[in-house]
């Protein structure tokens, strides 16, 4: 019988190999991050000075938060093509509500309203996908027109203002750490909380095998709706950061975030088919994308090459991530 007992362990790799394999994506994304930082630092001599770090982080935050939002729906087996316009909607609603007021209480209420708008938009998306059972791509593509139409109704052209202390505060340093970094940390903590709740486990389960999750008793429609609501809330946080960063409202500001957030998610190694990945890696992916934009800017590339080079770098990064995930298939 001893012989039979050893069978289970024979093909098992040792713990280190297993850990490395499990976290291969994180290791790969982190190496890519180091590479991007190094290149950026070479091109930009004052890259490591506190003020540059702060301004970089400040401009990265919206994409970082949007990438976390997108990761959550993708992990649950969905996708959100309306994410960018939800950001826009939150942006214009908040700026419109603030109007000319400069009272902190009013501001707090307006920010709360922004979060509610995001959650509501997410709820509508979730219902379209989980209850009406539309394909996620189609459903969110359709609702994106609703959100962008509403945004234009609320604010037909860029304008408005926010209290000075609000946009100043966003650039501040608190306890020696820039506010932008606090926001990133806060978002990561929120993600870790979600991940440790049963809901987090069910998001992975539904994205991994929807029928199996259902047969196990998981309320799969509920989980999908929850993933879209969470996505909406995080999108709203991204929208609030943009308000603070730009200090004004703009009915076109969010649109690019839909595709860049998906790109950040993929660079972070999350599988678009769901069930595999981590929002933490998407945060790194978003920072890498931001750094790439910097690199191109400081490399003094003629402006008409910039998009082209950005595209090439992103494709290379995606291919790298893709190769790592498919190479393991035969094992």
């Amino acid at each position: 019988m001893e012989s039979a007992e050893s069978v289970g362990t024979r093909t098992r790799t040792n713990l280190w190999q297993r850990l490395l394999r499990r976290h291969l994506i994180t290791v790969a994304t982190a190496s890519l991050l180091v590479l991007a930082i190094a290149m950026n630092a070479i091109l930009q001599s004052d890259f490591f000075t506190p003020s540059v770090i702060r301004s970089n982080l400040t401009s990265f935050v919206p994409l970082v938060v949007a990438a976390v939002a997108q990761t959550i729906v993708i992990l649950a087996g969905g996708i959100d093509l309306s994410l960018g316009v939800i950001i826009t909607l939150v942006d214009v609603v908040v700026v419109r509500l603030i109007g000319t007021s400069s009272s902190p209480t009013v501001l707090a209420l307006c920010l709360g309203a922004g979060l509610a708008v995001g959650a509501l938009a997410g709820l509508v998306n979730g219902i379209a996908v989980a209850v009406i059972r539309l394909q996620p791509i189609v459903a969110t593509f359709a609702t994106s027109f609703i959100w962008s139409g509403l945004s234009l109704l609320v604010m037909p052209r860029p304008g408005g203002q926010v209290p000075t202390f609000f946009y100043r505060g966003y650039r501040q340093v608190f306890l020696g750490i820039p506010v932008a970094a606090w926001i990133i940390a806060g978002v990561l903590v929120l993600w870790l909380i979600i991940k440790r709740l049963p809901l987090g486990r069910y998001i992975y389960a539904v994205g991994g095998n929807q029928q199996a999750a259902y047969a196990t008793g998981i309320n799969e429609s509920g989980v999908k709706i929850a993933s879209y609501v969470l996505c909406g809330v995080f999108a709203a946080i991204a929208g609030l950061c943009i308000v603070a960063d730009t200090a004004t409202g703009d009915p076109f500001v969010g649109a690019p975030f839909t595709l860049t957030s998906i790109t950040a998610v993929v660079i972070g190694g999350t599988r678009l088919t769901g069930g595999v990945g981590d929002a933490g890696n998407s945060v790194i992916g978003a920072i890498i994308l931001g750094l790439v934009t910097n690199i191109i800017f400081f490399a003094n590339v003629p402006s008409f090459y910039q998009e082209f080079i950005f595209g090439v770098i992103v494709v290379a990064a995606l291919a790298g991530a893709g190769m790592l995930t498919t190479r393991r298939r035969s094992s």
């Binding site: 486990r201 992975y204 389960a205 994205g207 991994g208 095998n209 029928q211 199996a212 999750a213 047969a215 196990t216 069930g275 595999v276």
Partner: peptide, 10 residues
């Protein structure tokens, strides 16, 4: 179940 009800990613 015959068609297994496991989540491969967990």
């Amino acid at each position: 179940y015959q068609d297994l009800s496991l989540i491969p990613q967990l």
